[in-house]
Amino acid sequence: MARVIVDVVLKDEILDPQGDAISRALPRMGFSFTPTAVRQGKSFILSLDHAPSASELKEIENAAATLLSNPVIETFTIRVEN
């Protein structure tokens, strides 16, 4: 069993109104920390019944670049949990 996790976030230069709204909400709720910025992203968790091979990881990277993220506005990272 393994899980391949693809994290997708908006590029730094792309406006993120959801992240901005969260950033404004945090101090209002009385949290002691004050982040200078919040960026909201999303995760895709792909479950496999085996540890992914190098070629499978390459394919997942391809899927992340074409379907799971839009390279015009987003970047992604891939991590594997065995």
Binding site: L10, I14, L15, D16, P17, Q18, A21, N70, V72, I73
Partner: peptide, 17 residues
């Protein structure tokens, strides 16, 4: 059209949400 890369750029969440 933007997702298809027939047009450049992308449409994202309205600034006021």
């Amino acid at each position: 059209l933007c997702e298809s890369h027939l047009l450049p750029g992308a449409l994202t969440r309205n600034v006021g949400l």
